[in-house]
Design a protein around this nucleic acid. Structure first.
Lengths: 219, 219
DNA sequence: TATTTTTTTTAGATTTGCCTAAATTATAAT
DNA sequence: ATTATAATTTAGGCAAATCTAAAAAAAATA
């Protein structure tokens, strides 16, 4: 089966939303994809026809096995291209998302297998997100949100919550990137902000919003 | 300005046909693009609106400066990706055309400049066709058709006339590829076929059709 | 529980890119 | 110079993917 770019983008968006909330609503999708809810309803009916998901009017949507397989394939393509762009073409890690959004829709499977081989079978993309293998298996990411950590804990940044240029620009300015080591110094209950310390840097404060969008592994 | 995949494919096809025949007809385009003439007329009207070409109803079409610039940009993207697929991903040179047809529509200019740099600024793609630079300049190909050579002349294969799998498959079977050295042994006036000799190979006969689709440089 | 608000779906329209069938124009042949 | 043929365009339609406005269903609230 072959799918349009729009269809692939819907499947990918449903998959992403499913990660935190197994039943996805029309409104969530419309926000994620920047379209109107009516358009989402249309597309869900078409994707149900194509047997990629379970959809009951008014009761949200859930990918079936076929849909998940397709989603993981698109995610694989996206993350491999991101790795290529940073590793080989020397793009900044915060500049590659938009380009990979286009590259991920190039349909040749052989292309992806050869690209994977050329890149040395990388396990994670430049944002720290794991790359599924060709059968859709993926190392369970041991990402935590920075926001979940307790005072005194130390961690290494491994990824970010979304690819918006606003977030990425902000991280760059605060000198936070993949691989950055940091320690939680203090949590403020009033607004859930955090104070963190990085080597050779002054103490800085991160808002709850920002901390929730920075992923780390403990050390 | 941003163009759809269909629009880009029309511009590229017009450019290709213009090479041999400066005024391109609706029927030629419909054959090249595998669509109906009526669809071509539709699209030509839209591309004229967008000021990419000169089009007078019933009198064919010609790219203007803007259209040529776009065409050369698409050709550049296509040929760089072909080079990448063969050189880095180790695809066979006759398997890359279809994939490059998709990759060429990825729109980032920075991507292409970085890819060009990564590949070492190649001058020609794996079929021997020259790669335009970022401002559309291109080494005038010193390709000759094998069909134009005289008896006793020696040449090296540098490219092929089209990317149809029929042609490429046939060349592979006859052990003719880029870089192959050969000598014209005899021309038959009756059917314009050629007898050629390659090192360590028996004499073989090529039809006029085939010879016209093999490009070479003299040695 | 009845009513209001929010969410979702339906109905009808639009754009792109294609199609078929019919009409028109240009070209070739008598 | 007419007529026949071939090429091209016009007219009207269709599917994909979107939209707005209105209707329907579900959830929240009084």
């Amino acid at each position: 089966m072959n799918f349009s770019i729009a269809e692939e983008n819907y499947i990918k968006a449903i998959w992403r939303l499913q990660q935190t909330d197994s039943n996805v609503t029309t409104n969530e999708l419309s926000a994620e994809l920047q379209t109107k809810p009516a358009s989402v309803t249309d597309m869900l009916k078409r994707l149900k026809e194509k047997k990629l998901l379970h959809y009951e009017p008014y009761y949200g949507v859930k990918l079936n096995a076929e849909g998940k397989k397709l989603a993981l394939n698109i995610v694989r393509r996206h993350r491999l291209w991101e790795f290529f762009l940073v590793e080989k073409l020397k793009f900044e890690w915060d500049a590659v998302h938009a380009i990979a959004e286009e590259l991920e829709h190039v349909s040749s499977n052989e292309l992806i297998e050869r690209l994977d081989h050329f890149l040395g079978h990388p396990k994670a993309d430049p944002h720290g997100d794991p790359i599924p293998d060709s059968s859709g298996r993926m190392e369970s990411s041991n990402h935590f949100s920075l926001h979940q950590l307790k005072e005194q804990q130390q961690a290494i940044v491994t990824g970010v919550g979304d690819q918006s240029s606003g977030l990425l620009e902000m991280l760059r300015q605060k000198k936070i990137g993949i691989g950055t080591k940091l320690e939680i110094k203090q949590r403020f209950l009033f607004d859930s902000s955090l104070e963190i310390k990085m080597r050779n840097q002054p103490l800085i404060t991160l808002s709850e919003q920002l901390a929730k969008n920075i992923f780390v592994t403990l050390i």
